[in-house]
Amino acid sequence: MTKSEQEIPEQETGFAKINLALHVRGRMAADYHAIETLFAFVDDGDRLTADHAEALSLAIEGPFSAKLDGDVDDNLVLRAARAMAESFAPGRGAALTLDKRLPVASGIGGGSADAAAAIRLLDRLWGLDRPLAHYEPLAAGLGADVPACLHSRSAIGRGTGIALDFVDVPGLSDQHILLANPGVPVATADIFRRWDGKDGGALPASDLDALFAEARNDLEPPAIALVPAIGTLLAAMREESERVRMSGSGATCFALYDSHHDAVTSANAMRARFPAIWTMTGRMRRSACTAASAGPQTMAS
């Protein structure tokens, strides 16, 4: 390896996560809830770089860096890096830089996606060369969404979201997406506390259109009650697309389109109506699972 090659930092994307559907099935011990959710991922998100160093460190920059300035030492990226070093590379260090492009506390993975990106990135930087499945227990210890974000492939999550069944949703990878956030951070615990306690049934095994006709996000009603701007934004987006939903516990909403042009046109229309919102357009990542598992299932009607 040449000196110039050694000086090029490793890079990884913390892919934005969406919940195509999220059914809350009941309460569990220790204030957890049993859910069934269909995770999917966008081809863009936060950016993480790493270079060789004697110790672990994290610098945060980007549009939403100010929201994390006071929590660098407890940031999930650094926690993931420490766990990786302790378990798989004792004594190793890395200088990490997070370009924070996704809103904080917004229902699209955020810190979980960044932690997952750190695991993938350090696996390469430190030459560990292990399959992603090897890191699933470590990821689960960092948060319920981190295992799904580790693979960044469509999957049904059950329990707290950690138990994953990878699925291929027909037509999903052909879809373009608009993400829109009204600029209001939402605490997941606050939304779950407002859930009505009613089990509306399991996720349908169905195609993409039926997911929006038959499935739901059970956290939408309590999120809208807490932040009415979410409901206003969803209503406006539904004028542009039939495939619209809030992701996770909010406040980010998403709409799917058949073309990049339609997604960008809709983004422009939303910003014209709501100048303060954050938007991002992208494409859905392919559904095929690359994890070491029994292989992806297929959701079919």
Score class of each variant (00 low, 15 high):
A105E: 07
A115R: 07
I108S: 00
L125K: 02
P131Q: 14
D123L: 13
I108P: 02
A118G: 02
H134M: 13
R120A: 02
R120H: 12
A140D: 07
A113E: 04
L138F: 09
H134Y: 12
Y135R: 02
R120W: 07
S112V: 04
S112N: 15
Y135H: 08
A118K: 05
L128M: 12
R120Q: 14
D114T: 11
A139W: 02
A140R: 11
I108L: 08
G107S: 14
H134F: 13
A105Y: 00
A105P: 08
A133F: 04
R120Y: 09
Y135P: 01
L128S: 04
G127T: 05
A113P: 00
S112G: 15
W126N: 05
E136R: 12
G111W: 05
P131K: 14
R124A: 15
V104Q: 08
A115Q: 09
P137V: 14
S106N: 02
P103F: 10
L121W: 09
V104S: 11
R130V: 09
L122V: 03
P131V: 15
P137Y: 15
P103S: 15
D114M: 07
G127R: 11
L102G: 00
G109A: 10
L102K: 05
V104Y: 07
A116V: 08
G110I: 01
A118H: 05
W126R: 06
E136Q: 15
G109C: 13
L138D: 03
A117C: 14
A115C: 12
A139D: 07
P137H: 12
L138K: 05
A140H: 06
R124Q: 13
P103W: 07
W126A: 01
A118C: 13
S112W: 01
D129G: 08
W126L: 09
R130N: 06
L122D: 01
G110L: 07
P103G: 06
I108F: 03
E136D: 14
D114Q: 12
V104I: 15
G111N: 11
G107Q: 06
Y135S: 05
L132N: 03
A133V: 10
D114P: 05
A116R: 02
A133W: 03
G127P: 03
L138N: 05
L138W: 03
G107C: 15
A105T: 04
A117L: 05
W126C: 06
Y135Q: 01
A117K: 00
E136V: 14
D123H: 12
W126P: 00
D129Y: 11
G107F: 00
L128K: 08
L132K: 10
L128A: 14
A139N: 09
D129N: 12
G111V: 10
A105F: 02
L122K: 03
R124W: 13
H134A: 14
P131M: 11
G127V: 06
A133K: 00
P137R: 12
A139Y: 02
L125F: 10
L125V: 09
